[in-house]
Design a protein around this nucleic acid. Structure first.
Length: 278
DNA sequence: GGAAATGTTTACCG
DNA sequence: CCGGTAAACATTTC
């Protein structure tokens, strides 16, 4: 379930287990796993040393000791698994990597049921891969400019929910955290952004940061040393969601039933009492 | 059988 | 050109 907190959890897991390792093999196992814009096949990373794992919004990349980076987007269902050879291979494995560091060996799998995720080999410009150049800073980036982002949001006529989801204004928020942030800030998802006060938009941005930070906390504890599932499943979803997926459940704040409405191809969930469209 | 599912890109329209 | 919406991508699960 990859939004920023899940991708960050994956990033931490990969960094924890793989920094310092060198790629020994790299193999795509599905015709669409390598993004068409990739400069090279996955084999271009063989021999490269992993210096770091970086992230912007929901984009992830392996920083290597060469010009190129291995970039990944998890799409809707992508996962990285640091697997063990003595365990059975799971289904839907789209790419396979072998790594080593001295005597130590690791096996990395990229799994993706729905195949909206991808991998690519790209050039970095100012440390950012080509495919993420248009993605705005996420709120955990040291250079994130809160008031500039709020001002850009305020200038939009579109519904606030599509504005908070716009990865070119602020990155990282997906459908789940959008609904949770709007619920926390008590904002109806369909209000045009320009009709909200700067203060109200500020409270929404703060709510997004807060809810995502809480999710990262929970997600960061889920590693299993034996069969390392670096997919960011956190347990956060079942226990802590106030609005998303809670249609008909009582609002944790006021007890009113959470309502679900259509939003493009998916849904918005909100409390009809706390989040009024004025 | 139908509906819905965490995301991004591209096409299209006004 | 811009902003905004809708569809497309594929598969599984409820």
């Amino acid at each position: 379930m990859p939004e920023l907190p899940e991708v960050e959890t994956v990033r931490r897991g990969l960094a924890h287990f793989l920094i310092g390792y060198r790629f020994k093999s790299a193999e795509g196992l599905h015709p669409r796993v390598v993004k068409p814009a990739s400069l090279q096949p996955l084999s271009a990373v063989v021999g490269a040393h992993i210096k770091g794992i970086n992230r912007r919004g929901k984009f992830l990349w392996f920083e290597l000791d060469r010009e190129l980076a291995l970039v990944a987007h998890l799409g809707m269902s992508g996962q990285f698994l640091v697997a063990r050879k003595d365990r059975p291979a799971p289904g839907h494995v789209r790419a396979h990597f072998e790594l080593s560091k001295g005597f130590k060996k690791q096996e990395l799998l990229f799994r993706d049921q729905r195949t909206f995720g991808w991998l690519s080999v790209e050039q970095l410009t100012d440390g950012i891969p080509q495919s993420a150049r248009h993605i705005a800073l996420d709120p955990f980036d040291a250079a994130f400019d809160r008031s500039a982002v709020i001002a850009r949001m305020k200038a939009r006529k579109a519904a606030i929910k599509s504005v908070i989801l716009n990865q070119e204004i602020m990155s990282g928020v997906g459908n789940i955290y959008a609904d949770e942030s709007l619920w926390r800030a008590k904002i109806h998802p369909e209000i045009p952004a320009c009709e909200l006060s700067v203060k109200k938009i500020g409270s929404l941005v703060d709510a997004a940061v807060q809810v995502m930070a809480e999710a990262v906390e929970v997600g960061g504890t889920s590693f299993d040393a034996m069969y390392i599932n670096v997919n960011g499943e956190s347990g956060f979803f079942e226990t802590s969601l106030a609005a998303y997926g809670q249609e008909g459940e009582p609002c944790p704040r006021c007890g009113r039933g959470i309502r679900r409405i259509a939003f493009g191809n998916r849904s918005s969930h909100y409390c009809p009492k706390c989040q009024v469209r004025t």
